[in-house]
Design a protein around this nucleic acid. Structure first.
Lengths: 139, 139
DNA sequence: TATATATTTGCAATGATTTCAAAAATGAAA
DNA sequence: TTTCATTTTTGAAATCATTGCAAATATATA
C-alpha cells in the first residue's frame, strides 16, 4: 500500500504533473481491487474533490494508461475498466454476476507465445470468462 | 477449409436453423483470417445476399458466439471483431497500424493460471499489444 | 505582477451496438 | 395446397460509453 507521497513521486517520475485531481484518481485506482470504471472513479471522488468532471476522469485515466502506470481492461465488451495492480495476473469475468477477479499466474504470459521476437510488446492481458465458484454452485 | 455443407451441418448440430443469411455469415467468419467486424461482414455480404440488415449481422454473430461457434475479440476498445479460428491462439494488435494477427501458443493458456479448479471457464483470450515487426522497423 | 502554458470543466457530438415493431420466410397441421 | 403459428429478418430510432471542443481555471515563469 503506497503512501500519497510515493504515488505523487511516481507521477512526477513519469513526467506527469501531480494535480489534485490526478493524484486522487491515481490513488483511487491503485488502491482499489475492484477494477473500477471511469464512472465509478468519478462517483467515488466527486465529494472528496468538491468538483470533478467526468471528462477529467476519462482524460486522466488515458494519461495514466499511456504512461504505463495503470492498465485498461476490455474484458467486458460494454465498458472499460481500470486496474492499478502492477503484478502479472490474469482476469476472470463471471458471465452470471459480472464480477471481475484477479487470478495469479504461475509464469508470465509471454513465455507461452511463439514468434514474438520480432514484435515489441507493451501490454498483455489474459481474460477468462465463465462462471465464478459462487454462481457455478447456484446453477 | 470446410465446405458449405459441413458448415451447415455444424449449425444444425448447434441447434441453429441454417438460414441463407446465417450460413453466409458463418462461412464468411470461419474462412476469414482478418478478424472482421460486424460492419465488415455486412459490407462483404450485402451484394451476395441481395438484401441484408446490419442488425441481422449483429444478432447472428451474437448467436454464434453464444453457441460457442466463433469467438468475439475485444482487443480493440472501440469495436468488437470476430474470429472463426477454433485453434488455441493468442492475438497481437499493433498500436500503430491497428492490424490484428494470430500468434501460435506453445501450450494452452489455462495451464499457467492458478486456482482455476473451482471456476468453470467458457472462454479464454490472450491479447498482446505493441508494435508489429513492420511498424517497429519504421520507427 | 503580468503573461504564457497546462489543466479542468461541462455540454454537445460521436459512433458502435441494441431495441423494437413490422414484414417476410419457414414449418407444421389440416 | 392452404392455413396458422413460429421463427427470422429488416430498418429506423434509441442507447450510452466515450470523445471533442472551447471556455474557464489553475499553475509556472519571467
Amino acid at each position: 500500500m503506497a503512501t500519497r507521497a510515493e504515488l505523487r513521486e511516481e507521477l512526477v517520475k513519469a513526467g506527469i504533473r501531480p494535480s489534485v485531481q490526478r493524484l486522487a484518481i491515481f490513488e483511487y485506482v491503485r488502491q482499489s481491487c475492484q477494477h473500477p470504471t471511469a464512472e465509478v472513479v468519478y462517483e467515488a471522488l466527486c465529494d472528496e474533490l468538491g468538483s470533478l468532471s467526468l471528462t477529467t476522469v476519462y482524460n486522466t485515466l488515458k494519461l495514466f494508461v499511456d504512461a504505463g502506470l495503470i492498465s485498461m481492461l476490455t474484458i467486458d465488451d460494454t465498458f472499460r475498466c481500470f486496474d492499478g495492480n502492477r503484478c502479472c495476473h490474469a482476469h476472470f469475468r463471471c458471465d452470471n454476476c459480472g464480477k471481475i477477479v484477479d487470478l495469479q499466474m504461475k509464469k508470465d504470459f509471454l513465455s507461452l507465445v511463439e514468434g514474438l521476437d520480432t514484435y515489441s510488446v507493451n501490454d498483455a492481458q489474459l481474460y477468462l470468462k465463465g462462471l465464478c465458484p459462487a454462481c457455478k454452485n447456484k446453477k
